[in-house]
Simulated assay, not measured.
Amino acid sequence: MNPEEKPLSFVERMKQRAVNQQNYGGTATPTEAGTVQAACPNCGAGRTKDDGLTKCGYCGHVFIHTELTDGKYIQKEDNSL
């Protein structure tokens, strides 16, 4: 065996695999940084910090309607007590 053709060490093989590795999700597409402003479709106002993403703080328009149902680990509270 020629000394110049010695087998690769474990670390060298790992480095080689890392360089040749392909991304599972494919290549990333570059996008420019920016801000996305969400406005109320009812009154056009920007969303307020206090009310979050569920309703408009100015006109009361509901963006996301949620209804809690009994789940496997979390169940509705019984307010009749």
Rank of each mutant, 00 (worst) to 15 (best):
M1K: 05
N2Q: 14
P3F: 03
E5D: 13
E5T: 10
E5F: 06
P7A: 09
L8G: 14
L8R: 15
L8P: 04
S9Y: 01
S9V: 07
F10M: 10
F10G: 08
M14D: 08
M14W: 03
R17G: 15
A18F: 07
A18Y: 01
V19I: 13
Q21D: 13
Q21F: 10
Q21H: 14
Q22F: 00
Y24A: 05
Y24H: 06
G25L: 09
G25K: 08
G25T: 08
G25Q: 05
G26M: 08
A28C: 11
A28W: 06
A28F: 09
T29A: 11
T29G: 03
T29F: 06
P30I: 04
P30M: 10
P30K: 02
T31I: 03
E32S: 12
V36N: 15
V36E: 12
Q37R: 02
A38C: 11
A39Q: 10
C40T: 13
P41G: 12
N42K: 12
N42E: 09
N42M: 00
G44P: 02
G44T: 01
G46W: 04
R47G: 07
T48A: 12
T48W: 00
K49E: 09
K49C: 00
D50N: 11
D51R: 11
D51G: 09
D51T: 13
G52P: 00
L53A: 10
L53P: 00
L53R: 07
L53K: 06
L53H: 04
L53V: 09
L53F: 08
T54L: 02
G57D: 14
G57Q: 06
G57T: 10
Y58V: 12
Y58A: 08
C59Q: 05
C59L: 04
G60Y: 03
H61I: 00
H61L: 02
V62S: 09
F63Q: 07
F63S: 00
H65D: 09
H65N: 14
L68E: 09
L68P: 06
T69Y: 11
D70F: 03
D70W: 01
G71L: 03
K72E: 04
K72G: 07
I74E: 08
E77L: 05
E77C: 04
E77V: 07
D78V: 12
D78I: 05
N79Q: 15
S80A: 15
L81S: 14
